[in-house]
Design a binder for these strands. Structure first.
Lengths: 302, 302
DNA sequence: GCAAAAGTGTTTCTTATACACCCATGG
DNA sequence: CCATGGGTGTATAAGAAACACTTTTGC
């Protein structure tokens, strides 16, 4: 019957094997896709002259049911059996922001056993970036309970212990998320243990006020990823509108990296990632500035 | 009864909610942890004078059952319900190499729908590195059907199409995996589509000879990760034994990056990542060279 | 002696960093 | 006129890249 076909030790061909396969031999975990979406938007102007300050914001959803009822969580949900993880993430994102075509990259997959009190849940997290102007247009007015929170993320303690074959570096970060009504916070500990050649970094939530599950850790990881990518890639432009001034671009870099940059040097650094247009800002209370757009071909020469 | 406790819209407290929770409302995917383990080892010497050539190797397992029976796959397996993804990966790795304490980092989670003909399988992949001397000692002699394959990975076609708002960059890579008995190969296409600010990269297997599932894609991704990390971190030392010569270290960089490096410049670049010892090689057929070890504190000054 | 590799020095070019200066606008 | 930001130049330091040369061993 099975002439000419490869059979396994039970004498089954691939078709026969697949037809008989029992996919439920083992207990399976649930899988979710969670999305961190960041944007940078303007605070109120202090005077007619000053430029508005930029702040980094993250979108969170208020939980309407147990567990962590009333607390805030990253948008996300269970991956359906017939959609890829990317599709699940994009679907959840669209449900919350009603935007289709956002930048999105896989961040990390969180696989600890006790992440969720309901059951074993593995969460694939995605990092997404949007510019605030596009978000304004497609305002998610249905806004079940989705809100943007201003992000503050600071290192406040660092400790290094030297061991025989390496060292242990412990850092404490304070994450604060804030909007008009709520103020959430968390303390995250990262431990980098170097022993010989092998180094391991672990993250732990020491305190989490108002942030559901282990999402404080995911947000922390997302900020770190954003910081490192902005330095050597063009991701920052996903946070910019079509047209922008170089100072606006610089402010975005500054708010993400949490440092001040020198104007002249910054402009040289990003020079070939942008193209100038013939348009200018107006009514700014000071000299108008030229508007630029992203130059997708900037790394051609490199 | 439920005084003082938060209840949801059905009047349930968290305890009651969790007790009643049905974790099997939706069909769940299976989750595996797969590991790419790389090592760099010596080829035969050509003459008593010449140094042995270094080659990059990856560990694969011959599949003993359907699907892809007889083909080669990355070591890995289903994540148990009571172990984290890291634990699952480490367990699988130990089963194959009998080494405990290897460098391991999460690589990427593959979530496409049709990755496995048996059922929906999501695979969290991990990248691991080992030095060949340690591997030699703890030889995995039980060797069910685990074998090391020499890796060759080359770009052989590149095509750029400029569009209105960006470009499409298509690249074809040839991956070849080889040992004494088998010669596997795959062609992988990566498409980077830049449109406005948003860029997307997709990977596709055009041809896969002898490599099971989508594992050719995972290996390709692992090589890319290894290449980029070796340039700006100290991961390379995970491929080195305790003591090594600077030329050996340079060979490891060269085989991974697939380029030749200038000796003097290379030595300046890695100078503060290594510490010299008082030991030397001998009987080399040429001038003996000083042995170095990894300096875990190299980034202190930065 | 000589092949092969070990090991170091010099020159040049490119980037990064810090700082100083002038320009244009709206109230 | 002046606060505020727009925009550019210059000088110095640090780093990357290319090349040249000397030293040491085993056979």
């Amino acid at each position: 019957m099975n002439e000419g076909k490869i059979t396994n030790k039970n004498g089954l061909t691939e078709e026969q094997f697949l037809a008989a396969y029992n996919a439920d031999k083992y207990e399976k975990p649930s899988v979710t896709a969670d999305i961190i979406i960041f944007t940078v938007s303007d605070e109120e102007k202090e005077s007619y002259r000053k430029l508005p300050q930029k702040v980094l914001k993250v979108l969170l959803i208020k939980r309407g049911d147990h567990p962590y009822m009333g607390q805030w969580a990253l948008p996300g949900g269970f991956a359906q059996i017939d959609e890829s993880l990317e599709e699940a993430a994009a679907r959840e994102l669209k449900e919350e922001t009603s935007i289709d075509d956002l930048y999105m990259e896989q961040l990390y997959t969180w696989g600890d056993v006790a992440r969720d009190p309901r059951m074993r849940v593995i969460s694939a997290s995605y990092l997404s970036l949007a510019d605030s102007k596009t978000l304004d247009i497609k305002a998610n007015d249905d806004a079940d309970d989705a809100k943007w929170f201003t992000v503050s993320y600071k290192l406040f303690q660092e400790q290094k212990t030297v061991t025989e074959k390496g060292y242990i570096l412990t850092r404490l970060f304070k994450l604060e998320l804030q909007n008009e009504d709520d103020r959430l916070s968390a303390i995250i500990k990262t431990v980098k243990a170097v022993e010989g050649k092998v180094s391991k970094t672990e993250r732990e939530i020491l305190e989490s006020k108002g942030i559901a599950f282990d999402h404080a850790k995911i947000i922390e990881y997302g900020i770190e990823r954003l910081r490192s990518k902005i330095e050597y890639t063009d991701t920052a432009f996903n946070l910019m509108p079509e047209l922008f001034t170089l100072t606006e671009l610089q402010q975005v870099y500054e708010v993400i990296l949490d440092t001040e940059l020198l104007k002249a040097n910054f402009r040289r650094k990003i020079a070939d990632m942008v193209t100038e247009t013939n348009e200018y800002t107006k009514d700014a209370g000071h000299r108008p500035s030229k508007l630029f757009k992203f130059n997708a071909n900037w790394n051609d020469t490199k």
